[in-house]
Design a protein around this nucleic acid. Structure first.
Length: 471
RNA sequence: GCCGGGGUAGCUCAGUUGGUUAGAGCGCCUGAUUGUGGAUCAGGAGGUCGGCAGUUCGACCCUGCCCUCCGGUACCA
C-alpha cells in the first residue's frame, strides 16, 4: 500500500524537530522564569466538556470527535482553555491566582492552508482567578521576555482593550448580538485592508476569487463612526489615548478600557519591559468572541506577512460552565510551528542535522569490543556519539554516512592505531570547507587539519576542545 | 463551505493537436578508491503518466465522477 499521512497532518523530520525542541526548551524556561507552573491535561476530553453550550452540529464537525470506549462521546481538544477551566473547577482548593503554562498538540478539522494544519502545537500561558491588571501586564511581559530569549529582536507586542470598542458599538446603536461580528470584521483590517472592512460592515464585498462575502448591513452613520475610530492617530501611546478619549470620553465603558490601557502601560514600564517592544494599537480586537478586556497580538517586523505569532487577551467568564461562578483570567497562546518557521527564516535558530557529534567507525569487526569501549568513553564524558551500526560497509561507506547525516567527527582506528596506542580523528566539517578549495582528490585527502592521529588517552579532551573551537 | 489552478521517476519539471519503445536535470545505487566524504569519470536501478468509469481500432492526452495537493476566501468554540 501507498505510504501516506492524513490530510492536514505532517511529519517533523529530525532537522526540524531538533530546532523545535530547542525552541520549546527556551519557551518552557522563560515561562518558569516568569513564575508559571507546568500543567498537562488529556488530549481527549468529553465532547460535552469541549463543546458546552456550543454543542451543535456545526461545532461537532469542527473537531475530531467520536463515540469511544464505554460508549462515551469524546473528542480531541482544539485548545487548552476549556481543559484549564475544567481543571480549575474540579480543584476547588487550588490557590488563586493560578499561573500556568501548557504546551502540546491540539486538533481542528479546518481546511489545511499554508502553514496551517489539523494537528499543531500550541504553547499557552494564563493567569486565572484575578481581575487585577497586574496579571495582564505579566502576560505581556512574559511574551516580550520569551521573544528576547528566543533571539528575536525586531518585534512588537501591540495591545488594546475590548471595552473601548464595546463602548463605541453601544454608542453607535449597534445591536448587542452584532457586536461580536463587528469585532470579527475589524480583525481583518491588517490582512484585508480598510476598504474591505468598511464594505463588510455595510453591504458586503466580493473577494479576489469572485466569491461573495455578506456584509453586516450597518448604516452609513454607524460605519463612519467606526471608520473615525480606526483612523485615530497611531503613533505613540499617549497620543492614542488622548485622541481616543476626545472621541469616546463620554462613553463610560470606553473610558474604563482606556484607563485600563494606561494602567497596563505604567506597569509595563515599572516591570522594565523595553518600550520598543510593546505599544498600544487601538485597532487590535481579535476575532474571537470571548474576550472581555485586554487583547494583544505580536508581530515580527521583518515577517509581518506571517501574521501574529503570540496573541491572547482577557476573558472574564471562563469557568462558569462548570461551577456557576465565573472565574476571570488572562492569557496568551503561541503557534509553535508558525514561530519555528519564522525563527528559521530569521536565522535566529541554527539548523542542526544530527544529534551525534562523533561517529566511531568499525574498521575491523574483530575489534568491536574496542570500538564499543570508545563510544562508551565518549558518552561518559558527555560527547554525543554513535558507533557505525550499519550491516556492512567499508570505511568509505561509513565516512559517507557520517557526512550525509551531518556528524562532525569520525573516529578511525585499525591495527596501525591500536599497535601504537593511538587513534585517528577526522574533522568532517573542516573537510567540507577544504573541498571548496581544490578539485584534486589527492590533494584534498592529504589536506592538513582535516585529520589527526593522536594518543588514544587524550581522545575525549581532543574532541571536546575541537567542538569548543568550532563554536 | 465557496472560487480558481495543478497531479508524469525519490525531487523539480518537459512532452504527446489520440498511435507502437514516455524524457531531462538533480538525487539514489555500484565501481574507479575493500584505511577515508567533496569534485571527476564509467556503469546501473527506478514510472500501472493520481484513482475509477466512459468515448475510441487504440487514451498519459478527450469526457464524467472521485481522491489529493496548491492559491484565494469564508467559518473557527
Amino acid at each position: 500500500m501507498k505510504p501516506q499521512v492524513l490530510k492536514g497532518f505532517r511529519d517533523y523530520p529530525p532537522v526540524e524537530q531538533i530546532a523545535r525542541e530547542k525552541m520549546l526548551g527556551i519557551a518552557r524556561n522563560t515561562a518558569e522564569l516568569m513564575g508559571f507552573l507546568p500543567l498537562q491535561t488529556p488530549s481527549l476530553e468529553c465532547a460535552s466538556t469541549l463543546l458546552g453550550s456550543h454543542y451543535n452540529e456545526d461545532s461537532l464537525n469542527e473537531l475530531f470527535g467520536f463515540n469511544g470506549p464505554d460508549n462515551v462521546d469524546m473528542a480531541l481538544r482544539y485548545e487548552f482553555t476549556v481543559s484549564l477551566a475544567r481543571y480549575i473547577a474540579s480543584n476547588p482548593v487550588l490557590p488563586l491566582p493560578f499561573r500556568r503554562y501548557q504546551y502540546g498538540n491540539v486538533w481542528r478539522v479546518d481546511k489545511p492552508g499554508p502553514g496551517r494544519f489539523r494537528e499543531f502545537m500550541q504553547f499557552d500561558i494564563d493567569i486565572v482567578g484575578t481581575r487585577n491588571l497586574l496579571a495582564d501586564s505579566e502576560i505581556i511581559a512574559t511574551m516580550v521576555t520569551m521573544f528576547n530569549r528566543l533571539g528575536v529582536d525586531n518585534f512588537k507586542v501591540r495591545y488594546s482593550n475590548r471595552k473601548i470598542l464595546n463602548g463605541l458599538i453601544e454608542f453607535a446603536g449597534i445591536e448587542n448580538e452584532t457586536g461580536p461580528n463587528v469585532m470579527r470584521v475589524i480583525d481583518k483590517l491588517e490582512k484585508q485592508g480598510k476598504e474591505a472592512v468598511l464594505a463588510e460592515l455595510g453591504p458586503g464585498r466580493t473577494d479576489r476569487s469572485g466569491d461573495k462575502i455578506p456584509g453586516l448591513q450597518l448604516s452609513d452613520q454607524q460605519i463612519s463612526q467606526i471608520e473615525h475610530f480606526l483612523d485615530l492617530p497611531s503613533d505613540n501611546d499617549s497620543a492614542q489615548l488622548d485622541s481616543a478619549r476626545s472621541l469616546l470620553g463620554n462613553i463610560e465603558m470606553s473610558r474604563t478600557g482606556l484607563d485600563e490601557l494606561e494602567t497596563i502601560g505604567r506597569y509595563l514600564d515599572e516591570i522594565r519591559v523595553n518600550r520598543d517592544h510593546v505599544g498600544i494599537d487601538l485597532t487590535i480586537v481579535r476575532g474571537l468572541g470571548y474576550y472581555t478586556g485586554a487583547v494583544f497580538e505580536t508581530t515580527l517586523h521583518d515577517l509581518s506577512d506571517y501574521g501574529s505569532m503570540f496573541s491572547g487577551g482577557r476573558y472574564d467568564n471562563l469557568v462558569s460552565r462548570f461551577q456557576g461562578t465565573a472565574v476571570p483570567g488572562v492569557g496568551a497562546s503561541i503557534g509553535i510551528d508558525r514561530l519555528l518557521a519564522a525563527l528559521i527564516e530569521l536565522e535566529a535558530i541554527k539548523q542542526i542535522r544530527s544529534t551525534s557529534q562523533v561517529l566511531v567507525t568499525v574498521m575491523d569487526r574483530e575489534r568491536i569490543p574496542d570500538y564499543l569501549n570508545i563510544v562508551a568513553e565518549l558518552r561518559e564524558s558527555g560527547i554525543c556519539s554513535e558507533i557505525y551500526s550499519g550491516d556492512s560497509g567499508n570505511l568509505t561507506k561509513q565516512i559517507k554516512y557520517a557526512d550525509k547525516v551531518g556528524i562532525s567527527f569520525a573516529v578511525i582506528a585499525g591495527s596501525d592505531e591500536f599497535n601504537q596506542g593511538k587513534i585517528t580523528v577526522k574533522n568532517l566539517e573542516a573537510g567540507r570547507s577544504k573541498a571548496e578549495e581544490t578539485d584534486s582528490r589527492k590533494e584534498w585527502l592529504k589536506a592538513e587539519d582535516v585529520q589527526e592521529t593522536i594518543e588514544r588517552a587524550v581522545l575525549c579532551d581532543y574532541i571536546r576542545s575541537k567542538l569548543h573551537s568550532d563554536g
